[in-house]
Design a protein around this nucleic acid. Structure first.
Lengths: 342, 342
DNA sequence: CTGAAAGCGCTTACAG
DNA sequence: CTGAAAGCGCTTACAG
């Protein structure tokens, strides 16, 4: 492979001149430029990005480590949308994305620090949603800029993060059900270990409290984001008889679909007898029958904002400590309707 | 940031000794090792991967450029599954994935050669499915190993690629419809410019020919992978009256769903009156009603095989020129049934 | 506008 | 087992 030195020799100039021609930010005479370019073309010279990175201490790369934490993670809504947001913005700015895998929450942190420590990227977007205070502290100890997708456990204002306000929008979803006249409302969360689950649960509880509605521990269940989890939640709750919920909120669409299936199998009509709300506006949500009312979370936008802030921080040499909530939208479709007594 | 030199000074050894301790492949005395490690820990030293890469001419990175060629590309089946396959295998081997974006077929090739030329990765998985002979030739001119996901236009045996045998499995899908008694079978392809479309069409034609079934140009349409494309295909074909198809094959599930919607709106019952087969086993395919019979293509496996071959080639210094077809599966569900006259 | 030199932070063949 | 030196392929401050 031709190097800058080969080109210099062939063009009869100093290597630094070749470098200047290719970097484009120095005044080089027409004539020299032509000679260098001709030599480069003849030798099929392409600058080595690694050598350049070592010299300028910049890789034009941002990293992300993908926490492959449950089966179906890649096919779920989060990952593809996040990749789209990252890639589109990175591409616009001439950056590439370095993606690392991980197979657990803990490994995710290990991998993150490995990339950071080895300086393979100019910055990193951290996707883990279960960062503890220590990890955030360790991240702050090091000098590579990072933006969190997901609000950190303790935010002292010196961090950049973007998130969805899960508490607020879950509350709005529950408010919507209350507005339809429902009084026995169930909450089917995902993994109770994950921060988002606690946030949504708080939104649920707040909505009920504000409306002075009854609460019942039996109306709260966790389906671990799996269709079967939603299905089983219904089985347990239908056993409550007259206390069975007339409306369900599920923290993702897959669980909501499981809920609808369980209801259908028991002859309960959605939305005439029971209403169901899902989350994420997944591809399937629009195609089940009835189409699922769902809380759309703009993951692509979250990721896009995160990299944009990150890249601007890299180029400016100082990261702006944005704390940003992207707006979510409740898409009302056929799976929710007014409470009809009972 | 501490360098190997800082550690060497603090430990009172030569930088090369520090390097040897961290590379782990040289005999170093217990005592020296301890001193070096202690110094490294005290200085929070982490080897700079870029410097190492420049020196050893290996990045432990494989690249992929994502051809973002139609809206919904990221949320479709191909991208997430490919990423899963790439990431899992790369992770196992201690590699990372460098992802570049592109916004057109042409740009995809540009980006590919840019990554290749700048030697930011040890190898590359090429996803573009419209490579022409010239591009493949240019790829072969350069020295970085690559594996194609998708069979190249002309294969002289000196290339590594993995693909699905689209022709064969489309033919099998049509055979299945024929076996159900259908004689007027429609083909709704994606983008006619894409190689996969031509392959599937050939499979379709072959199946009809072998069964000595009538062919009709009006039964062939292209929906560009969009739901509306399937919908419109039905509108045109229903206008054929008694010649309207009794079965549809669609090159993705979204178009198949559009087909089902158009049929439902016109009061045609699936599968009693008309059968429909989709492609990809998308999340929504299992949840529409009736559930969609679909041709599953194991994209994750394709990608996994591709990187595995690539990484082994990188490490061995010689790429194995595998030509590999991954097996596809026809998942029969509720949208297909026996032909009932008419 | 161009050259010569030093440096980015590692690795490794060569000696001892 | 360890050191000294040269090299990986660029960039850039300094001179002229």
């Amino acid at each position: 492979m031709a190097t800058i030195r080969d080109v210099a020799i062939r063009a009869g100039v100093n290597p630094s001149t070749v470098s200047r021609v290719f970097s484009g930010k120095a005044k080089i005479s027409e004539r020299t430029q032509r000679r260098v370019l001709a030599a480069a073309a003849a030798l099929d010279f392409h600058p080595n990005a690694i050598a350049r990175s070592l010299s300028v201490r910049r890789t034009h790369t941002v990293a992300v480590v993908v926490p492959h934490i449950f089966p179906g993670y890649f096919e779920d809504c989060f990952f593809p949308q996040v990749m789209r947001g990252l890639l589109e913005v990175a591409y616009e700015h001439g950056y590439r994305i370095l993606v690392g895998g991980s197979n657990s929450h803990k490994d995710n942190i290990t991998q993150t620090f490995e990339i950071l420590g080895s300086r393979q990227a100019d910055g990193i977007v951290v996707l883990s949603n279960r960062l503890d205070v220590d990890t955030v502290g360790a991240l702050r100890q090091q000098s590579t800029p990072f933006v969190l997708v997901g609000r950190p456990p303790a935010d002292n204002g010196a961090l950049a993060w973007v998130d969805a306000d899960n508490e607020r929008y879950t509350q709005e979803a529950i408010d919507y059900l209350i507005g339809l006249g429902h009084r026995r409302i169930a909450f089917v969360g995902g993994d109770p270990e994950v921060a988002v689950t606690a946030e949504r649960l708080t939104g649920y509880v707040t909505a009920l409290e504000r409306a002075n509605l009854p609460r019942n521990q039996a109306w709260i269940d966790f389906g671990y984001f799996a269709e079967d989890g939603g299905y089983q939640a219904v089985q347990r709750m239908m056993a409550l008889g007259v206390d069975a919920p007339s409306a369900y909120y599920a923290a993702n669409d897959l669980m909501a679909i499981g809920i609808m299936r369980a209801l259908r199998e028991r002859g309960v009509c959605v939305p005439d007898e029971v209403s169901v709300i899902g989350t994420n506006n997944s591809p399937e949500s629009a195609h089940v029958s009835p189409p699922l009312t769902t809380l759309q979370v703009p993951y692509a936008e979250m990721a896009a904002v995160a990299v944009r802030v990150l890249i601007e921080g890299i180029e400016r040499g100082a990261l702006e400590h944005v704390q940003w909530y992207v707006p979510c939208t409740l898409l009302t479709r056929g799976s929710t309707g007014p409470y009809r007594g009972g």
